[in-house]
Design a protein around this nucleic acid. Sequence first.
DNA 1: CCAAAATACTAGGACTTCCTACTAATGGAC
DNA 2: GTCCATTAGTAGGAAGTCCTAGTATTTTGG
Lengths: 190, 190
Amino acid sequence: MDVNASWSYHGAMSAETNAATGVAAGAGLGFDPIARAREQWVEQGWDAAADGMAAITSLMRAHQIVLARVEATLRPLGVTFARYEVLMLLWFSKRGSLPMKVIGSRLQVHPTSVTNAVDRLEDAGLVTRSTHPEDRRAMLVALTPAGRELAERATKALNTDVFEQPDLGPRDVRSLVDVLTRLRARAGDF
Amino acid sequence: MDVNASWSYHGAMSAETNAATGVAAGAGLGFDPIARAREQWVEQGWDAAADGMAAITSLMRAHQIVLARVEATLRPLGVTFARYEVLMLLWFSKRGSLPMKVIGSRLQVHPTSVTNAVDRLEDAGLVTRSTHPEDRRAMLVALTPAGRELAERATKALNTDVFEQPDLGPRDVRSLVDVLTRLRARAGDF
DNA sequence: CCAAAATACTAGGACTTCCTACTAATGGAC
DNA sequence: GTCCATTAGTAGGAAGTCCTAGTATTTTGG
């Protein structure tokens, strides 16, 4: 994979698609499709919505780019980002185990998504399920030694290949986190 | 649905989940899980990766929140955001039709995702497929009158219910677009 | 001019997300 | 003390994404 790419998914390459991420690169378009869409919004008289549209569309596209990069880094390790998040939640917990309910509320995903992720982690021998001793409705999910080891390897890979190469400049990174923290706060995220 | 919520998915509500978006609200956590994760990264000595991790995690969560809001707005109209994007691409095109290939490269999605979206739009009578007159490998996707009408209604709904209520303040919206534009540019998005 | 390479699209599969509906267990109201 | 509402988790299904592997058509190179 492209070592100098940072968040970039094709770096200095001129190819139109990058096999590592599977994301088609628009290099050569010569214009920013989101800026163009914003202009079209204004042309239609939708001025009041133009900036919001651009912001949301930018968020969608940036998510797509970054997720592809993260998944490409995790793929050789045999986990997806969704499952990695579950592993790290358990890794940081004192006992190394948590009820399904807690996992879902921390990750803000649907209960069935937790069931799905834990099913696959269990099949891979990375976690175990056991009934909660004080509430037989609840399931305790616990990290196995293999799961703990994989969590550490995956984190090392993500840190060096993705998180330490934000490709954005420290000011932009801080600004991005600040703005999105306000957005999440107003959305009731915490 | 919560009329005063803007991007927020529970506004003044105290409920733990919002039926409109299906996103579980973490209201009452009392702390920002991403800020906490960042602290844990630093505690582990992963200082160099902490800000990048926070930025990417924030992006993931913000995307989840915003997408839920967009989908909730489109659901009554019977389209998803993925299909709405295809409709708007056609709507803005001069002839009202585009080859699949162009749709995929503009939206930066895999060719099979375009096939999937167009299949469903065709089933719903919103677009038609025809072979390109000058290249029989290619398929031309064209908007039907019903598709054009739905694109307009959906845009009106998104503009008033989502894009005009960014819940962020004009400075933050501009800043977000600017930072993400730099990110996309370095990723070769245009 | 014809064979080989590139291109456009589709089929089937894996994985994630959510939704609705269901079972099992807890705990409060009477 | 029993009944009922709430809660925790799971099953099955729809929809999105990508991937790999195919077919058909166009373009290129010898």
